[in-house]
Amino acid sequence: MKPIYQEYFRNNLPHIWCAGCGNGIVMSAWARAMDELKLDKNNVIGVSGIGCSSRITGYLDLNTLHTAHGRALPFAQGAKMARPDMDVFVFSGDGDCAAIGGNHFIHACRRNMDMTLIVINNNIYGMTGGQFSPLTPFGKKATTAPYGSVDPSFNLCELAIGAGASFVARGDIYHAKQLTDLIVAGYKHKGFSVIEVIASCPISYGRRNKIPNPADMMQYVKDHTVAKAVAEKMTPEQLEDKYITGILHEAQGREYTEEYAKLCERVQGGDK
C-alpha cells in the first residue's frame, strides 16, 4: 500500500512552510480523511485563496484552484454550481477568510452550498511577515501591533452559525486524529461545513508573543483548546482564553444546488 502522502499529494514536496508550522498537520489530516472517505480524486475540487494556508492546493493531487486573496469561496461556489456532482474542499486562513474574505464567508454560510471549508487559524498574517488579523487575540503583538493589538478579535464559528452554515466545527493541530474525524464529518454533512483549525505560527506569531519554540507553540495550542463536553462543565472565566473544539453546530438546512435543481424542474414543468 502506498503511503497516504503519495496517494493524495502531488510529487512536488517539500512544501514552502517554515519548520514548526501547523499547516502540514492540517494537510495530512485532510489526506487521512480522504483515505477514510475513499473519494475519487478526479471528482474532487480543491480551492484556496492567498496566504500560507492557501498554498495547500498546490500540493494536493486534485482539480485545484489557487485563487485571489479572500476570494476562494466565490470561486468554489461557481465551480460547485457548474458541477454539483463534484466534491469541493476549500482551504483558507484567518486573514484570507475572516478579513478580506469576510463578506464572502457570511454569504457562503447563508447559501449553504454543499462543500467543506477548512480555515487554518494561526492568529496572524504569516505570508506577509506577521501582521495582526481579525482573529489575533486582543493584546497580542504583531508587526503592525508592536505594542499589542487594540483590535478586538471575534469568534469565527459563532459567526458561521449565525450566518446559516449547517455544520460548524473547530479542531486544532495538537489533536490531529480529532481533526481528521471532523473533516470526515464535515464532508459527510450535506450543506456548507465550516471547520476552523487552531494552528501555530512560531515564526511570525510565536516569536513576538514569547512562544518562539515550535514545541512550546504546540503546548500552547494544547493548553488553550478544550473539548466541547469538557467546556460545558467550565465557567466563563475558565473559558476566557480557550478555544472550544469539536462539532459545535449541526443542522439540516436547504442545500443550495439542490434547491436550484428543484427550481429548474419546476420551471421546466411549466409551473412558475
Partner: peptide
Amino acid sequence: GAIIGASAA
C-alpha cells in the same frame, strides 16, 4: 470569482 470558478469546471 464565481464565473471564473464555474468556467474552470
